[in-house]
């Protein structure tokens, strides 16, 4: 049975309202400060070591993103850790709070479809994240200009823009997950706890567990072990399992895009090195090609999780 009318009617209204809610909320302010302060600390470390060692590096600006100095991880690694937190903070009570405030049936009694409400909320949260990430991106470039004094080249800007887009989709995965949980669980606290649990599991525990599982699936070959080498099969399985985590996909994609010398992600085969000039940077398009599967993975993850939430929301009863 086909319904009449556009599913996008009211989308703009919901989007604007949610966006202004997100941006003015105290919760968002706290998350922004958290990210800003840790990011500044990481950048400070990177800038400090770059100034002491001004070797001829054609991609000085990109080094700001990736350079880590103990005890702080790099800017990208910090974002990989904190973007999910921000996305979960925006999404975990998107739908269930409307239920609990008893506003859902009143809003849905207006001439709009549920599609507009869910899509508007998702896009508004994603836009909020995008604005924040873009601000961070500008901050990195600005600080780079001020403290390093080297104007960024076109390719550096292009690569850092790719970083921005991938970071937004990485945020999208976690946002879609958080919104899905906000549809499944009627209590925002439960949704938040489950989302944070998944986040901690995938970013902290999974990198430890994946190699262990890989060893179960493909036990290490004693011949390699005797030589002090890793068994290729075990290594591949480990990498394969690791890539279940969006965090791993994000870090790998960033490695390829922000370190132009990266030729491959994961195991290196001899044929891949044939004719390669070691240490020479790849063109941007080639770097993007290397990270393409990871990027597609993130985009697909966002869409799949959003669609799952969408289907559940369409079937959910409106009454509290």
């Amino acid at each position: 049975m086909r319904r009449e009318g556009s599913p996008f009617q009211g989308l703009g209204t919901v989007f604007v309202k949610e966006l202004s809610d997100n941006i003015s909320s105290v919760r968002m302010l706290v998350l922004e400060l958290l990210i800003l302060l840790t990011a500044l600390a990481a950048l400070y470390g990177a800038i400090d070591s770059l100034r002491q060692n001004t070797a001829e590096d054609p991609f000085l600006l990109l080094r700001l993103f990736t350079l880590a100095r103990d005890p702080l991880p790099s800017f990208v690694a910090i974002l990989g850790f904190l973007i999910p937190l921000m996305a979960i903070g925006l999404g975990f009570d998107a739908v269930n709070s409307e239920h609990n405030r008893r506003t859902l049936s009143r809003i849905l009694a207006q001439p709009i479809y549920r599609d507009a409400l869910l899509m508007g909320k998702f896009l508004a949260a994603l836009a909020t994240l995008a604005v924040n990430l873009a601000a961070l991106w500008l901050m990195v470039i600005g600080l780079g200009l001020i403290f390093l004094g080297v104007p960024p080249g076109t390719e550096e800007i292009a690569r850092s823009l790719v970083f921005l887009v991938v970071a937004i989709f990485y945020a999208g995965v976690w946002l879609a997950l958080a919104m899905l949980l906000s549809i499944v669980f009627r209590s925002p606290a439960t949704a938040a706890l489950v989302a944070l649990g998944v986040w901690l599991f995938l970013t902290v525990l999974w990198p430890m567990l994946a190699p262990a599982f890989a060893q179960v699936i493909a036990p290490p070959d004693p011949r390699y072990t005797a030589l002090g080498l890793d068994t290729p099969d075990t290594g591949l399985w480990s990498l394969f399992l690791m890539r279940v985590s969006p965090n791993e996909l994000f870090i790998e994609a960033m490695q390829a895009v922000l370190s132009p010398t990266t030729r491959t992600l994961g195991a290196v085969f001899l044929e891949q090195l044939r004719g390669a000039v070691m240490g020479a940077p790849l063109p941007l398009a080639e770097s993007v090609m290397i990270a393409w599967p990871q990027m597609v993975g993130l985009i697909a993850g966002t869409i799949v999780l959003f669609v799952a939430g969408y289907v559940l929301f369409q079937r959910q009863e409106v009454r509290a």
Binding site: M1, R2, R3, E4, G5, A109, P111, I112, Y113
Partner: peptide, 11 residues
Amino acid sequence: ARQPLAVKARV
């Protein structure tokens, strides 16, 4: 069921 927007605009 089929024209909810038309209904909800007037109710």
